[in-house]
């Protein structure tokens, strides 16, 4: 038997007895970032495919919500900083090795992009919208001509943003639960899935809702596959990763993860979406709401559990 204790009574705030440095702000940001990435990805993609008129919510309406979402996410990130007045130092350096630096710069690119896209479509939400100033009208006309480029940039940057929310965590080898390269694709898929769910929730067009419910179903399938894959990888890895997986396979996060994230957040909405496709009547709001809540909870649990998992020595 081996027992290790810190006899000098180290009790550093936020570090002991286990790391708790990232509280609610980070998972909230990861959720909003993923959701925004999902919406922008579909908006850009469906515009490029020329489906603007067929699927108006995804191209025109949903992206209008993205700038406030990103602003809120950034605000949460700011709240998380412990040395707040120095936040601008993020934008004095580009550090290619640091995922957080990448994230800061991607957000710097995608936030104005999403604002431009929202500005181009604000008239669909507020038909009486008037730009008032001549320069604003000219700017809008200019952007209108570049819309295809904007769409391509949005698709590219949104994939980076979505995958980054996972890579941010997976880059930490000190936290075995996070230290898997599957986390990037998993968070991207989950972000896209929450984006599709948000579009289903907002759309008043039945064909569009069905289309996105189908996309969401596919994404849920991929997500389940990645989750199983992640745990298989952990179980076949080193002791620290076996211990990390055991937090979810009998440990303290078992019930909340499998019941709420996998059960209510993935499997039940998938069943509901299949039922809807088979023309069985179910209220269409239930599945997307479950997906969104599941996605949020997933990020809370991963952020928290990752800080519990650790190396032993």
């Amino acid at each position: 038997m081996r027992e290790e204790i810190i006899v000098s009574g180290r009790n550093n705030h936020l570090i002991d007895p286990h790391l708790e440095i990232w509280e609610w702000q980070i998972p909230m940001y990861l959720f909003l970032g993923g959701l925004a990435a999902g919406i922008l990805f579909f908006a850009g993609l469906f515009y490029i495919r020329g489906k603007e008129k067929e699927y108006p919510t995804v191209v025109r309406m949903a992206p209008i919500l993205v700038p406030p979402m990103l602003a809120m996410g950034l605000f949460f990130l700011f709240l998380d900083l412990k040395h707040k007045l120095y936040f601008w130092q993020l934008y004095t350096t580009i550090k290619l090795e640091s995922p957080m630096s990448w994230g800061a710069w991607v957000l710097m690119g995608i936030t104005p992009l999403s604002m431009m896209w929202a500005a181009l479509h604000i008239k669909y939400l507020f038909p009486k919208w008037d730009w008032k100033f001549n320069w604003a009208i000219q700017a809008e006309a200019f952007l209108q001509k570049q819309k295809k480029w904007l769409a391509w940039a949005m698709v590219g940057l949104s994939v980076i943003l979505g995958i980054y929310t996972g890579i941010l965590l997976s880059a930490f080898n000190a936290r075995p639960l996070w230290n898997t390269s599957i986390l990037g694709p998993l968070f991207l898929t989950s972000g896209l899935s929450t984006g599709a769910a948000a579009i289903v929730l907002m759309s008043k067009n039945k064909a569009e809702r069905h289309h996105f419910a189908k996309i969401d179903l596919g994404l849920i399938g991929v997500e389940l596959f990645l989750i199983i894959h992640m745990f298989m990888g952990f179980r076949a890895s080193t002791q620290v990763q076996i211990d990390a997986a055991n937090l979810f396979l009998g440990g303290e996060f078992t019930a909340v993860f499998w019941v709420f994230v996998v059960g209510l957040g993935l499997i039940i909405p998938a069943i509901l979406e299949i039922m809807e496709m088979r023309k069985i009547k179910v209220p269409y709001m239930v599945a997307p709401v479950l997906v969104l809540v599941g996605g949020l909870l997933f990020r809370f649990i991963m952020t928290h559990a990752g800080q519990v998992s650790r190396w032993l020595y």
């Binding site: 790391l19 440095i21 998380d80 900083l81 412990k82 120095y86």
Partner: peptide, 10 residues
């Protein structure tokens, strides 16, 4: 330092 906690976590 902005106090983001990345180094503490790493």
């Amino acid at each position: 330092c902005i106090g983001c906690g990345a180094c503490v976590t790493s």
